[in-house]
Design a protein around this nucleic acid. Structure first.
Lengths: 145, 145
DNA sequence: CTGATTGCAAAACGTTTGCACGTTG
DNA sequence: CAACGTGCAAACGTTTTGCAATCAG
């Protein structure tokens, strides 16, 4: 799920149409290794397709999510999407609050977590938020000026 | 922040009015040791106050949050509130997907997590979801019937 | 060609706001 | 009685839906 070609192949293997807009959407998420809000996507796509409508963006985000191409998570300020991690092994993420890019953390806290027997665990969430190297640098530059 | 009286005291110490509705809201969250959506709260309160309006519920949830009485988090299906943990030490939660109740986890995964030096960590989220003992039992009972 | 995809308009949500009236301290 | 809280109606932003026109395979 890391290349535009793979995504397109997956689309057509499901009998879905490969439209220009969907190709662009795939390209956007492949380039951008991070979370994007529907609005981010709409603004980006809008520059390319005049007369683009918000509902098509939503529909395509949904399609991609159902295909397993994208994954969705809730932030404080709303839903965001990113390319689904195709990595074999379970992992978590560092997430940059500025640019939305993510970096893998191999360590999974569930190994060390004692859970009462009575509690039936279904899933867990572990995310670390902060600022990545380049966003920290920008911030410092801004502070100086 | 564990009793209705403490919450009321905090309200009036801030020059805010102690209304019936706010007392009921406090009682609700003190009893319920878990997450409630604004809708949950509205439905509960609506049974008591006919003509209750949604915006008042929101306003009071907000007031309580600003007082530090409640805390808010985002779930897949929207915002929810619960009594703010007054515990001294940092901890995380087991959260029941059925009833919304929470149970503390002392272990904090950040201790074991290696983060690249360049990444400036601001906060983290660690939550374990599943079903608590009583909800598991109900589920099993349902399965049998 | 046939069914999938798109834009448009409108609806459906959840949440917030302004206002006049009622209530608390 | 002054300030704060409430209900109502209406605004708002986000997400979804129905429909007719368009496009991909």
């Amino acid at each position: 799920m890391h290349t535009v070609e793979e995504i397109i192949a997956r689309l057509s293997s499901q009998g879905l149409r490969v439209t220009d807009q969907r190709k662009t959407l795939a390209k956007l998420f492949v380039q951008e290794q991070g979370y994007l809000s529907p609005k981010d996507v709409y603004e980006y796509m809008g520059k390319i397709y005049s007369g683009l409508s918000f509902d098509t963006v939503y529909r395509n985000l949904r399609v991609m999510e159902e295909l397993g191409v994208l994954e969705q998570i809730m932030f404080e300020d709303g839903v965001k999407f990113k390319l689904h991690c195709r990595e074999e092994q379970h992992h978590h993420h560092l997430i940059c609050l500025q640019c939305g890019k993510t970096y893998p953390i191999k360590h999974c806290p569930m190994d060390q977590t004692a859970v009462p027997q009575q509690f039936k665990v279904v899933k867990h969430k572990f995310e670390v938020f902060g600022y990545c190297a380049s966003c920290v640098r920008e911030e410092e530059a801004d502070a100086l000026s």
